[in-house]
Amino acid sequence: MYLSFMFFTALLIPIPVMAGLMKKKMSPYRVVVEGAIGGISGALFIMILASAAGHSIFSQFQENIRYMAESLAGDPNVANFLGAELSENQRAELLQQIYEQAAELLPSTIAIFAAAGAYTEYLILSRLIKINGEPAIRMDRFREFNLPRNIVIAWVGLYLLSWLLTNFEALPGQMLAANINALFDFAFSLQGMSVIFMLCYKRGVPKIIVVIIIIFLLFFGIGKLLLMILGLADVIFRMKQRMR
């Protein structure tokens, strides 16, 4: 229940936050970032409330994971997929480990969910809100999307921090590293997608073809890596500026 509230809050809070900021005629992307931060803060508040009420989100997650792992371990199809040589207990332990690794990404999942929701909500709000009789500032074309260059410094700094925590066997080290990787992979992949959009725009490629190309890349590990590297290169070298 609390987990659902967290995602709902992450989706709801950005709306009033962004509506207020849009009246100040701030940069659309900054408004989205502020809205996403508001959504993440709201989700964090729900987590704190749950803990204060004696309902730890992660404890509930662990119980659900254990239940799902035990249920799936007895499924004949899962047994055939994982290998008949594994006992049911071994399958349950393996599945539990997989689910626990996925559960560690809950913070970054909520952050990405809040950011994606805020972006979509801004697109809608910008068509509904008027400021002194004038329409709100519209979101720039996705091909114009640019991360600040100092995000690379933040990425390296946070990664080094997580590396130090992991090496000193601090409990949050591995979890922090996993979430940092997920967040920055997402951010750099977005930047990489914008490069492809810009390149195809300059070549006159229809948008539907560009979308198909990106979806194709996202289906493969090497494609995701390519998007991330392309995005990182664009952040550092500003390749899109040379395409204009």
Rank of each mutant, 00 (worst) to 15 (best):
P28Y: 01
M243N: 13
G20K: 07
L106D: 01
S59N: 15
A136P: 07
K207E: 10
A43Q: 05
A233R: 00
L95P: 05
Y201D: 13
I209W: 13
F45R: 03
L190S: 00
R91K: 09
E169V: 06
S189Q: 03
S189C: 07
N179I: 06
K202L: 11
L217H: 02
N181T: 14
V156M: 06
L128G: 05
G231K: 01
G173L: 06
F58W: 11
D185Q: 04
A43N: 09
K240H: 11
V152R: 00
Y99I: 08
E63R: 14
G133T: 05
A50T: 11
G83K: 05
N150K: 03
R30C: 08
A103D: 04
F184V: 01
Q62T: 12
L123R: 08
Q191V: 02
L218C: 08
I15Q: 09
A114H: 05
Y67V: 15
P172D: 05
R138A: 13
A43R: 03
N89V: 10
M18I: 02
I57S: 07
I15E: 06
T9G: 06
F168Y: 14
G38C: 11
G35M: 03
G83D: 00
Y2H: 12
L225N: 03
G133I: 06
N181R: 09
L49Q: 13
M193E: 11
D185K: 01
A177S: 14
L158Q: 12
I48N: 14
K224D: 10
S189Y: 01
I214L: 07
L164R: 13
I215D: 01
L230K: 04
R143F: 15
V33E: 09
I65S: 05
G35F: 04
I46H: 13
G173K: 10
L164N: 07
Y2E: 15
L44K: 14
L232S: 07
S27F: 03
I212R: 09
K240F: 07
L226A: 08
S108K: 01
F7H: 08
A177K: 12
D234S: 00
Q241M: 12
K224R: 15
K207D: 03
S41C: 15
A10P: 05
L3E: 15
G38H: 10
A136V: 03
R244W: 02
A111P: 00
G39N: 02
A111Y: 02
S71D: 10
I236E: 03
V195D: 03
F168W: 08
G231H: 02
E88F: 14
L106N: 02
L227W: 07
I37P: 08
I46N: 14
F220R: 10
I112E: 04
I65P: 01
E85C: 02
V78N: 08
M1W: 06
M198G: 00
F186Y: 13
Q191Y: 01
Y159R: 12
Q97C: 04
L125F: 12
L95A: 08
G133W: 15
L147N: 01
K202A: 08
F142V: 08
I131G: 12
Y122I: 03
L123N: 12
A116M: 14
E63P: 11
A178F: 12
G117Q: 07
F145G: 00
V152Y: 00
G38T: 01
G192M: 09
F81W: 15
R149L: 01
S27A: 10
L49F: 13
Q174E: 13
P206Y: 12
F7G: 11
G204Q: 11
D75Q: 12
F186T: 13
I40A: 09
M26N: 09
I153C: 06
